[in-house]
Nucleic acid binder design. Structure first.
Length: 561
RNA sequence: UGGGGAGUGGCCAAGUGGUUAAGGCACCGGGUUUUGAUCCCGGCAUCCGUAGGUUCGACCCCUACCUCCCCAGCCA
């Protein structure tokens, strides 16, 4: 988890390094502050890797903190999933697990202080009026008629707000800053509102809840955070972050630094939209393997390392950028290639009968578990007269560059024998090939022959009688548009890819595939990386997920034919 | 037409006054190969949003302009 090669520091790590060098800080303290109102996704992974990454790189702490100030949207279930996901990604927070709700009492006291200093007031304007009074991007705001209430009256009103004497929306506490500020966030922002909702941690103790801008900076300060990292849209909030801490004269004043959030092609990243896909059943849940949530990626078969590599690869900056989905895919391939054991599985089987092979004979052939890594050993595979091969590995009238099976052509069965196609049977009604007849060369066991003749093509196969039947789910990108959000006139769901999942019910795998543990990643040779689905796969009905395909240069050649 | 940000190859991204302008992905060639995988080798910006200026010298400094993103929740 450390820098392998000398990758240049991103601008944030540079700032942290400088602060250490100048002695401004002995150790950085960062934090990952999700709101528990949804599941974590690949975009959060970027923030997690940044914040926790700075922690491990400096042998320092990164706090886990839930920003739970809006009980109407938050749930314990989300807290649990978030904790699970961060751990799974490979990070830890030790004893530093916090909740903004832990600070509600302190936050309340600070609000009293603000009132006493004349820096906050209770405002009776309705939400609509507040919006009106706020002005616009180009016009200044108007001061609330309650702006100059006495400290005593404010204290009394705020106390009564806390005691539940007012209805939601009847009034709120506002910071007294500047209604003429060109930054709308500084036009007397609301810092406390009345919310008669049950909070997942504090229950019904409170009916007023602090707002993000007021809570976040104080929470950071309480925890002694040195660098408070957030996304670009909070840039305009930084003056408010600083105002609160300066006005309250808190002993510690963290530096907020903003970076660009992650955008990935062919997907959507907002929690709101992901929630919608889940709620309206466009996907099977937050952990649907097509979802770019951490739980979806985990179920799909992505490794934590591949996601960390991805986050390191894309870097941290301030430009709004769109990362190609291919970069993520490349990261899993790179991670899995050296470690995933090789197996054979025929996804779309067609039967091959080897006419010159004895009826009841079964022999064993030896296969390498990894072609480049002898340490992974070998295994034996049963071979017999009837086998399955991939339907697309046979063509009735193949072009020259098709290095597979066709009438009169010879191919190598991986780790098996050379076979030559003599004839085939076709169902005239459907046009489907139902059976292929071949003869094998008994001298070629293992995949090479004494005469040293060249056989260009090697295909995978599985002994029919010994095969493990299974279901394989092939996934493709969830959306068929690079940016489903691009057109404001068109709902993003219009761009859902109708072929994002293809379920193959009749796949035939080699025997060992019957007892792989759920989630265990393997490579199906010539196909891609797969793993047994951790929720659906059972001994009786095996279900495998395709994590990612192998690179396929044949695909390009084929298109040029 | 207010304020805050950003502009380096198809996509990311280093670079912070003197470099042949890193690296990854993608793409294009070639080699090895019992996975058309992996691996290896080679190619891929005379140019850094545009136009001026400063300088012996600028992607890096200055000026103007252009384009894109964010902000008017009692959401975070």
């Amino acid at each position: 988890m450390e820098n392998k090669t000398e990758k240049p520091l991103d601008f944030i790590r540079q700032i942290v390094a400088d602060d250490l060098k100048t002695g401004k800080h002995l150790k950085p303290v960062t934090r990952f502050p999700p709101e528990p109102n949804g599941f974590l996704h690949i975009g959060h992974a970027k923030s997690i890797c940044l914040n926790f990454g700075i922690g491990v790189e400096n042998n320092a702490n990164c706090h886990m903190r839930f920003d739970d100030t809006n009980p109407s949207k938050e749930e314990q279930a989300y807290v649990d999933s978030i904790l699970t996901d961060v751990k799974w990604l490979g990070f830890g927070w030790g004893d530093n697990l916090f909740y903004a709700s832990d600070y509600f009492d302190q936050l309340y006291d600070y609000a009293i202080q603000l009132i006493n200093q004349g820096d906050a007031y209770v405002c009776d304007l309705t939400p609509d009026q507040i919006r009106e009074y706020r002005g616009t991007l180009t016009d200044p705001g108007k001061e609330s008629p309650n702006r100059n209430r006495s400290v005593g009256e404010n204290l009394d009103l705020f106390e009564r707000m806390k005691n539940g004497e007012f209805e939601e929306g009847a009034c709120c506490l506002r910071a007294k800053i500047d209604m003429n500020s060109p930054n709308l966030n500084m036009r007397d922002p609301v810092i406390y509102r009345i919310l008669k909702a049950h909070h997942h941690r504090t229950g019904d103790k409170w009916c007023i809840y602090p707002m993000y801008d007021y809570t976040h900076c104080i929470s950071d300060s309480i925890e002694g955070i040195t660098h408070s990292l957030c996304t670009l849209e909070f840039e305009d909030h930084r003056p408010l972050y600083d105002w609160v801490l300066d006005t309250l004269k808190t002993p510690c004043h963290p530096r907020q630094i903003e970076f660009a959030r992650l955008n990935l092609t062919y997907t959507v990243m907002s929690k709101r939209k992901l929630l919608q896909l889940v709620k309206e059943n466009y996907v099977e849940g937050w952990d649907d393997p097509r979802m770019l949530t951490i739980s979806g990626l985990r179920r799909r078969g992505y490794t934590p390392a591949s996601i960390r590599d991805f986050c390191a690869e894309i870097g941290i900056g301030k430009r709004e950028s769109w990362i190609d989905m291919g970069v993520l895919e490349n990261c899993v391939r790179n991670d899995l290639n050296p470690i995933a054991p090789r197996m054979m599985c025929v996804l779309d089987p067609v039967k091959v009968i080897i006419d010159n092979y004895p009826e009841d004979k079964v022999e064993e052939v030896t296969a390498k578990n990894h072609p480049q890594d002898p340490e992974q050993g070998t295994r034996t595979l049963p071979f017999s007269r009837e086998i399955y091969i991939e339907r697309e590995d046979f063509m009735e009238d193949p072009p020259k560059k098709f290095f597979r099976l066709g009438p009169g052509r010879e191919v190598r069965l991986r780790y098996g024998y050379y076979i030559t196609c003599d004839s085939y049977i076709k169902d005239e009604a459907t046009g489907q090939i139902t059976e292929i007849h071949c003869t094998y060369d008994p001298e070629s066991k293992g995949g090479s022959s004494p005469d040293g003749r060249k056989v260009k093509g090697t295909i995978h196969w599985v002994s029919a009688k010994h095969a493990t039947p299974m279901t394989v789910k092939l996934y493709d990108r969830l959306f068929s548009s690079e940016n489903p959000d691009a057109d404001k006139e068109v709902d993003f769901k219009e761009h859902l890819n109708p072929n994002s999942i293809l379920i193959l019910e009749n796949c035939m795998g080699e025997p060992a595939l019957a007892d792989l543990e759920p989630g265990k990643q393997v490579q199906f040779e010539r196909q891609g990386y797969f793993c047994p689905d951790s929720v659906e796969s059972t001994k009786d009905k095996l279900v495998y997920n395709r994590i990612v395909t192998l690179r396929d240069s044949w695909e390009k050649v084929k298109d040029n034919e």
